[in-house]
Nucleic acid binder design. Structure first.
Length: 411
RNA sequence: CGGGGUGUAGUGCAAUGGCAGCACGAGUCCUUUGGGAGGAUUUAAUCUGGGUUCAAAUCCCAGCACCCCGACCA
């Protein structure tokens, strides 16, 4: 991609209402743009990152043996009446009326939908276990949107639902999902804690949240200094000592980047989502559900992968792999840079080529801000050595590399 | 939903009730080219509707929008 063509206006300052570092950098880098309160646009740069995150999540879900589907955003009110959540989930249910004055809602989560489609076709224990997921827009009529991408009224969520014949099988799968979640976060450059959580209006027997430690997080957890077990304050209240080993607890702020629930039979009982067991007896399926909010994850990645100059994207979620920067308006520099750009692209690299006529300082500052992992500089100075300069975003060290050796440095 | 705050150019800020200005940005041209360069020139704003007043960005009322705290919540 030529940077002169990129639909992005990188800014020197952020508007004053942006308080969080992730919000500031994502706005300044023109990754995102606010439309109105709690609603954000993903601009090309931000959408590229979003897609990388989405691909990682999809890959890990498919590896679990889950099948991807798509459930409607417009919700069938009758299903929500069945579970009584038409009342109990409001707020944050986004209700509206169609032109015949019939009520509907925008989907904030999809237990009703998935359970309905499950009960219409699953008859036998032989069809279980079953894992289904989707990656799709959710709408929540929040009391208040906060902190840029951290709490928005529309966002995209990966929601996975599992159906089992017994608790044991669910427990096994629940652990597998935990592992898959840790892989997802690791690939996104995050190192979260898995903590016991309160299940809220989703309900169920128990749940776990994935938490990234951050001073700007709106959640509080208590972590045991000794046995490292942790729980959300919402779940256990403000207790002083660990319930397992009695050691002192430490309170920490964090950002919730995932929540998984053991739903038990909460939805299957009430909606009669039953299968026949080996003896031909009808039983409610045991269910689990597992969610990750993608934009919030993206903001959390920025929040914990940055320095004073800007974002430092982890390799797998970076919008581009290489930021090629040409300095000076020298014909030869332009020619060589163009050639390197073409060659890197041919070798399958995603390259952002800064072909603009701007001052070097401005180009470097913008490059640091948007945080592409590898920076490659071509200038009269480097060409005198038949070389380019290569610098990793997270390091300060600069390497001079011969042009015909470049491929050894970009893997 | 309760409380608080703020609305002036794309962004950040000024303007005692009396000519709406500055900086940055953006556009054009020239010069410049290793950490946000210089000059010339152009561009662009008082949230909306009422009221008070000779005169309103400024005071009053209503509305709208955004932000923050709380409650609520993946």
């Amino acid at each position: 991609m030529l940077q002169s063509q990129l639909f992005a206006k990188i800014k020197k300052t952020a508007p004053k209402e942006a308080e969080f570092i992730s919000h500031k950098y994502l706005l300044r880098g023109d990754f995102i743009e606010q439309s109105f309160s709690g609603v954000y646009r993903l601009l090309p740069l931000g959408f590229k990152v979003f897609k990388k995150i989405e691909d990682i999540i999809r890959e890990e879900m498919l590896n679990l043996g889950a099948q991807e589907l798509y459930l409607p955003v417009l919700q069938n009110k009758n299903l929500w009446l069945e579970t009584n959540r038409w009342q109990t989930f409001d707020p944050p249910l986004f209700k509206l009326k169609d032109r015949h004055q019939k009520e509907t809602a925008l989907g904030p989560t999809h237990e009703e939908e998935i359970t309905d489609t499950f009960r219409k076709r699953i008859k036998s224990y032989q069809d279980l276990p079953l894992y289904l997921f989707q990656i799709q827009n959710k709408f929540r009529n929040e009391m208040r949107a906060t902190g840029g991408l951290f709490r928005t009224r529309e966002f995209i969520m990966k929601d996975l639902y599992s159906f089992h014949t017994d608790e044991r099988d669910l427990a096994d799968f629940y652990e597998k999902v935990k592992k898959a979640y840790f892989r997802i976060y690791q690939r996104c450059g995050l190192n979260p804690l898995c903590v016991e959580a309160s299940s809220g209006t989703i309900g169920g027997d128990f749940s776990h949240e994935f938490m990234v430690l951050s001073p700007v997080g709106e959640d509080k957890i208590l972590v045991c200094k000794k046995c490292k077990s942790a729980a959300n304050v919402e779940k256990i209240g403000s207790i002083k000592n660990c319930r397992k080993c009695k050691s002192a607890l430490e309170e920490k702020s964090c950002i919730e980047i995932g929540h998984i629930f053991n739903l038990g039979t909460k939805y299957s009982k009430i909606m009669k989502a039953e299968y026949l067991d080996k003896s031909g007896k009808a039983k409610p399926a045991i269910m689990g559900c597992y969610g990750i909010g993608l934009q919030r994850l993206m903001a959390a990645v920025v929040e914990t992968n940055c320095d004073k100059s800007g974002i430092i994207w982890p390799k797998e979620v970076a919008p581009f792999a290489i930021h090629l920067i040409q300095i000076g308006d020298d014909q030869n520099v332009r020619k060589v840079a163009e050639k390197i750009y073409q060659d890197l692209q041919k070798s399958g690299k995603e390259v952002l080529y800064d072909d603009r006529e701007k001052s070097p300082g401005e180009k470097f500052a913008e490059a640091d801000l948007i945080g592409i992992p590898l920076r490659m500089v071509v200038s009269p100075r480097t060409l005198a050595e038949d070389s380019v300069e290569i610098k990793k975003r997270e390091e300060s060290q600069i390497k001079l590399v011969k042009i015909n050796q470049i491929k050894n440095y970009v893997e």
